[in-house]
């Protein structure tokens, strides 16, 4: 590990100010950052410890919830309001990592975890995300867990978060504080970037910009499902996952929110899929069509080719479960 300066911020503004220095990183749970620092994929010169900041509350706001960035994954999953009104989020959180990790990992940090691409973690391999311009060994290598949508010829790294997939389905927004003291709100498609030619940048956050909270809009009701398919029953990243919120009224799907993990370079959502389903009567043929729309542009890279037929089976299964319609 490279030596680094350690500073403990007294309030969020101070934290953002310190972190705007070159090569600074916030540290909260540290469940991903510390691993990356040990292998020098991350080499911050300053760590800004934000764990004592007052960002640990979940409060009702704007008809929905405001979740402090430092609420742990365990606490968020267990929150009564989350379990009642945003079941898909609770389920997604509990499908991620392990009990020990969820006790340390925070809401803000979960959004910002880096990819689990094996080549990103192996400093002897080529990786455009870790070392821009070096190349991508994942492209024709062991890419079993990597993305089939949103990729570029520079990078096929998948985003590993389960929580963020549910957040995307729920239209969550992150609140941030910049180093100049201003604040802003970002939807997840505004927060995350596709790799394009700059895979080294996972997000649009500026230097020193601190996620302070997450806003959930008012509850959607409906049937909420998070289905995660993985290589072992726990403590494994998603091969594919689906976060679904489906409300059926008078035999038609009036509320349809679908987000996907494991397949995209960011937590994935496709408006065309939801449009195809919304207002329609559920049927097996329609579910298959939805999967076709989702996967129309999907591209396998060898070891992860199976994700396409897998998702083609999983999405309809989730829709069957949500609607009770199987024919």
């Amino acid at each position: 590990m490279k030596s680094f300066a350690y500073e403990r911020a007294s309030d969020p503004k101070a934290a953002a100010a310190i972190a705007s220095r070159a090569h600074a990183r916030f540290i909260a749970g540290g469940t991903n950052l510390l691993d990356l620092m040990k292998i020098q994929v991350e080499t911050p010169e300053t760590l800004v410890d934000i764990t004592r900041l007052p960002l640990k509350e979940i409060v009702e706001a704007g008809g929905g919830l405001k979740i402090g960035a430092l609420v742990t994954n365990s606490d968020l999953a267990a929150d009564e309001r989350v379990r009642r009104d945003y079941e898909v989020l609770s389920r997604a959180l509990l499908a991620g990592a392990s009990g020990q990790l969820r006790n340390k990992a925070t809401t803000g940090g979960n959004f910002l975890q880096r990819t689990r691409c094996n080549y990103f973690y192996e400093t002897n391999a080529r990786c455009n995300k870790r070392e821009p311009g070096s190349g991508c060994d994942a492209m024709n290598g062991f890419n079993r867990i990597l993305a089939i949508l949103g990729t570029s010829d520079k990078c096929i790294a998948s985003h590993p978060s389960d929580m963020a997939v549910a957040m995307r389905a729920l239209d969550a927004e992150v609140e941030t504080l910049k180093s100049d003291g201003s604040t802003r709100r970002l939807t997840l498609p505004e927060l995350y970037r596709l790799p394009g030619d700059t895979p080294e940048r996972d997000t649009n956050l500026e230097a020193g910009e601190l996620i302070t909270a997450v806003r959930l809009p008012k509850p959607l009701g409906g049937t909420q499902i998070y289905r995660k398919v993985r290589d072992r029953a726990s403590y494994a990243f998603a091969l594919v996952s689906v976060a679904a919120v489906i409300g059926v009224e008078n035999g038609r799907m009036e509320t349809v929110r679908l987000a996907f993990g494991g397949i995209g370079t960011m937590p994935w959502r496709d408006a065309r899929v939801e449009e195809a389903l919304t207002g329609e009567a559920p049927s097996a043929a329609l579910f298959a069509k939805a999967a076709d729309i989702l996967l129309a542009e999907a591209k396998g890279h060898g070891e992860n080719d199976f994700k396409i037929p897998l998702m083609r089976r999983v999405l309809p299964a989730v829709l069957r479960e949500a609607t009770g319609v199987s024919a």
Binding site: S98, D231, R232, A233, S234, Y235, A236
Partner: peptide
């Protein structure tokens, strides 16, 4: 490297 976990 996936050794079985309790849930397996």
């Amino acid at each position: 490297y996936h050794v079985p976990v309790n849930a397996d």
